[in-house]
Amino acid sequence: MLEATNLTKHYNGVTALDSLTLTVEPGEVFCLLGANGAGKTTTINLFLNFIAPTSGTAAINGIDVVQQPLETKKYVAYIPETVMLYRNLTGLENLEYFAALAGRPDYTRDQLLGFFQEVGLAGDAADRRVGTYSKGMRQKVGIAIAIAKGARSLLLDEPTSGLDPKASNEFSDLLKRMSDSGVAVLMATHDLFRAKESGTRVGIMKHGTLVAVHGTDEFGHADLERLYLQYMHD
């Protein structure tokens, strides 16, 4: 479960995020929409404690991320726009290392291969150096890490931008499976279509403020785009 309470961030007097209050429940996929600089990435960075909030709190599983940064990271997985891995190591070695960092150093090779299969990566990819991986493959490794870690919350920062439609689709399927198993997902995205497809709720941000929150079942694709543009206009 991800919770933000009056979360605010100023950079040198500029408000990047203004009193964000938000809860993402287990099994929910919350999509943050908004223009570049609207505060989406700031929100994610605040949840990861990569930056310190000016005021307000961010909590994962009810634990404040500023007070217990390491504890909260046990329950959350992060997938950036491109999952950057150690080029000189194989996919499996990367997965093993990150799983170990996440506190699961005891996976066998078979178990790790199992995670690769689960996210739809071919067996031979596991032993190749990630320098040769396509972006889609890297994103899948990101999900594999999240699964291996047993994360209960997922933070995604435009994970599908630049992916071809097929890869994007596969990624959404994986996301859906995770959320079905009770993972709370917060995803920043520009992809309205994906947001409608895989999201349960969408929030629209503007100048650091969450201006609207809607359930995705409230309207169709076209309606979402209209709504979004309407907020962007003024």
Partner: peptide
């Protein structure tokens, strides 16, 4: 610079 740091630090490690 290569972007791995963010992923590493999203793990529970100081």
């Amino acid at each position: 610079e290569q972007g791995t740091l963010a992923l590493v630090l999203s793990q529970p490690v100081a």
